[in-house]
């Protein structure tokens, strides 16, 4: 089975802080990580490979330093990694990003399954996966929490607001996964050593069959107009009485004074 996994290198948003004086984002010292959901996507791919055999190729679009993220994926057990990087891709929104990744996938040629994380933690759009599937003209199943492959039939459990839906599809298919699908494996020492030695090919615009008008800022219908920090919450009321009874009584009183109840 030929499996592709699309990953993104993201700032660890949990480590991002706001400078209280300038009210801007402090990015210095914020580590770059593989988007957590993409690790679940890779793990799902590796498990299918363990079971059915085949090859796992990881692709990422990003600046040259995204190679680090791809090396981590190699260390986890991916067979091959490709970075797609070009200044022409800069400022891409989801439509331009998915267009570029779809062109990359077309160049790779054969695939049975494409895995993505359900969304990236820096942008949270959950759009690039479905848009890649659309560009490629293949079917998709998003928010997948369980997957089984039998021949060319794929059976999954898809997360809904109220539960799970059992959905069947046929290869080729794009699947986006939620965190509960698995626990990503840790890189092995052998894997890490192999990853360190690996040369990761970098494909640029010239390597892809693309229309330049559809890349980067030019190919992005959406534009960021303004960035601002959300208003800080005003200081709350902290209640600490001698007994739980008293504390609850004070809370109820305050909620009722504020006409919340």
């Amino acid at each position: 089975m030929e499996i592709l996994v699309c990953i993104k290198q993201v700032p660890d948003t949990a480590e991002v802080k706001i400078d209280p004086v300038t009210n801007t984002l402090i990015r210095q010292g914020v580590p770059s990580i593989v988007n957590p959901f993409d690790k679940n996507a890779l793990e799902a791919a590796l498990q299918l490979k363990d079971k059915h055999g085949g090859k796992v190729t990881v692709i990422s679009m990003g600046p040259p330093q995204a190679k680090e993220a791809l090396k981590e994926c190699l260390a986890m057990g991916a067979d091959q990694a490709i970075l797609v990087s070009d200044r022409a891709f800069g400022g891409s929104d989801t439509l331009a990003t998915s267009y570029t990744l779809a062109a990359t996938i077309r160049k790779i040629g054969t695939y049975d399954l494409i895995f993505c994380g359900k969304q990236a933690i820096d942008g949270d759009t959950a759009q690039v996966g479905p848009e890649i599937a659309e560009h490629l003209g293949i079917a998709q199943i998003t928010y997948v929490a369980k997957i089984e492959v039998n021949g060319d039939i794929v059976s999954v459990e898809r997360e809904y607001e109220e539960g799970y839906g059992v959905i069947e599809g046929k290869l080729p298919l794009l699947i986006s996964v939620v965190k509960s699908i698995n626990e990503p494996r840790y890189p092995t020492i052998k894997g890490t050593m192999k990853a360190n030695r690996a040369e990761i090919p970098v494909w640029t615009m010239a390597d892809l069959d693309v229309d330049e008008q559809k890349l980067g800022l030019k190919g992005s219908p959406t534009q960021v107009r303004r960035i601002f920090t959300p208003p800080q919450r005003t200081e709350g009321v902290i209640i600490q009485k001698d007994t739980a009874w008293e504390s609850v009584a004070v809370l109820i009183q305050k909620l009722s004074d504020a006409k919340i109840i």
Binding site: S98, A126, E131
Partner: peptide, 22 residues
């Protein structure tokens, strides 16, 4: 919603327009 985000992106891509998420 899960469904809205599932096909919203696909529709936007087919039309070739922008979709602002969430």
């Amino acid at each position: 919603t899960n469904d809205g985000r599932d096909f919203g992106a696909r529709v936007a891509c087919r039309v070739g327009t922008g979709l602002t998420a969430d």
